[in-house]
Design a protein around this nucleic acid. Structure first.
Lengths: 345, 345
DNA sequence: CCCTATTCTTAACACGTGTAAAAAACGTCT
DNA sequence: AGACGTTTTTTACACGTGTTAAGAATAGGG
């Protein structure tokens, strides 16, 4: 059990009788070493406890094999699903992922970017924080690294690759569905913590105008600390339901977490969204949050293709870091949302 | 804007006219350098673009200032809350957190441990994967690093520090509450993916026996892919409710995510948990999942003190890595759960 | 047994920064 | 101006592995 601990390749070389450069090549790619040596090294490694020093190995390589990922907060299953698909895609491609979470704090986000530059990551994928994050951070990363933004994008930031959902399509899709099957929806906004908040609002508005209908947006003012979407949805609708407003409306929520709060508000007022099938109170969301299909009633929503977004972000990043000169033709990939008709609308 | 990029301290030294050792000391601790030099360096840094190389700085320090954290999966808000509290505690203490997620895969978990050893992290905090994870991994980490386990712990693993919830207390608390206010609960187990699954089962059983009642456990066999707790709860109870079983029972679920599936099963069968206040069908959970207070009905549960667990894990780890010789007196910290009485039971 | 192609070893420098020792510069006080 | 304490510079080596160039060893073919 207690194998002798060996701390350097030099010691290992002496211990198993293979020269250090050969060991170095073995650890990078065993096929670059002859069969017989591979066998000898493998047997030797079983006798001792040795792990190459991560820092030393990366120091004078041109590539570190790492990609950095920044997400804005952890307590949201949408981002954890996105992160999971990214980690899996990166793992398949042989990269190590370093994840940093900004915890809704622009300073932490900026520090995470510094850390990535300092660690010489090969590239970075970032889901931006939102309106009060420092755009210079993204521009700086973009100019120094292969860089891809995902999920949401600042309006004024040019030449940056982006992968996300086509909100005009996805929000348009559910807006049209709600209008067609029941009645035209009002839009329950989320606090504008990220750029998608506004994009979805605008997509809703333009679809409504296209249909010749009057858009109505409620809940723009944040009644809660940021990030607590459910509490926001609950507070806003509790306010309106108490006055008797919107109790027969179709309500399109800016995302599923807001919608979960909305469902709760309905329950507190004895309302049952979706029971009249084609009229009365209806509540819908956006994202297909993992719990949406377990809500009561199950939540009608538009699914974002999280899997595809993560994969595409990694693919694009790897494509960029394979070419030497950044030829800087911007790529924007927008995935379609898929309607998930359930009970609530 | 386009500041000249400087890649080494040597270049920086030449650029701003301060010797390299002084710069080195400045970056580690500006107070170790005179006021006048600090000012000169600060002004110089504004003129150029320079970030110290992370790997080079850590290579020949005795301490890297990093702590490694492993969590079993990301798509669970309990673990993301735990991770968040750990990151914040570590940040306050001046440490950089490197997070690795095992994605329910023992191989990935083992690889993450290797990575930490390879990176010379100062210590590691691990929430173990569960029954099929390789105990050798934990023993190896424990013998080579300051190491703390959290959340759940293998039965046969000795001398390892642990921070988690006292499940005898927490599960006992809600078992007693359910018994006292309505009727004795049956226990809806979760797939035994981690060690807590069994701990809670046993805590339930012994509390029932203490009360002179017959324990009943259902749902031990996994009907779903692991990690999909909601689907498990839904499938198991749908099965029983279809036969008319347990429709007037008090059901204690192994965790809130299972309970959310249970609530959904009840809804599908037209059942309304908790409406009779002191009898009829009741459903309760464990953990106080962030969405539990928004469920319909709101979910009665026992809150784990996630904040305290994360803080205590970091505190204990830092305490261990401050002392030179590991004196190896094991510390086990168990936090109490707090009853959250809501509508469902 | 010799020749050649492959693979290995030896030796050396490189990566960028930490760190220590000695010498030089600086500041302050008398 | 002289003396002393502080801070800086100079110089050198260290961390552990990547990488290269030269020479040595090995294998396979005739």
């Amino acid at each position: 059990m207690a194998k002798p601990e060996i701390h350097t390749m030099e010691e290992l070389s002496a211990a198993i009788g293979v020269s250090r450069p050969t060991l170095s090549r073995y650890f990078q790619d065993p096929t670059k070493v002859s069969k017989s040596s591979v066998e000898r090294i493998r047997r030797g490694l079983e006798q001792v406890e040795y792990i190459p020093n991560f820092f030393a190995t990366r120091m004078n390589r041109k590539t570190t094999g790492m990609i950095g990922v920044i997400i804005p907060y952890l307590n949201d299953l949408f981002f954890t699903r996105l992160l999971e698909s990214i980690e899996r895609a990166a793992m398949r491609a042989g990269y190590t992922v370093i994840t940093q979470c900004s915890h809704s704090d622009p300073e932490i986000e900026a520090r995470a970017a510094e850390t990535f530059l300092s660690m010489n990551v090969d590239g970075a994928v970032v889901a931006p924080l939102g309106n009060h994050s420092d755009l210079n951070v993204y521009e700086r990363l973009n100019s120094r690294l292969p860089f891809v933004l995902m999920d949401s994008r600042p309006a004024r930031l040019s030449g940056v690759d982006f992968v996300g959902t086509d909100h005009v399509q996805s929000t348009g899709l559910i807006t049209e569905y709600l209008t067609r099957v029941g009645g035209p929806p009002v839009f329950l906004a989320m606090p504008r913590v990220n750029f998608n908040a506004l994009e979805r609002e605008m997509a809703y508005t333009s679809k409504m105008e296209e249909l010749g209908l009057e858009p109505t947006i409620i809940g723009m003012e944040s009644l809660n600390a940021e990030g607590h979407f459910e509490a926001h949805g609950l507070a806003v609708l509790d306010h309106y339901f108490s006055k008797g407003d919107f109790i027969n409306a179709s309500i399109l929520c800016a995302n599923d977490r807001v919608a979960i709060g909305a469902l709760r508000a309905a329950a507190q007022h004895g309302l049952e969204p979706g029971t009249l099938r084609r009229g009365g109170l209806r509540i819908a969301g956006h994202d297909d949050y993992p719990l949406s299909e377990f809500m009561i009633p199950t939540l009608t929503t538009v699914a974002q293709n999280v899997q595809a977004i993560g994969q595409a972000a990694v693919d694009r990043l790897i494509e960029k870091l394979r070419v030497e000169k950044p030829q800087s033709n911007q790529t924007v990939q927008l995935m379609d949302g898929v309607l998930k008709v359930r009970q609530s609308a």
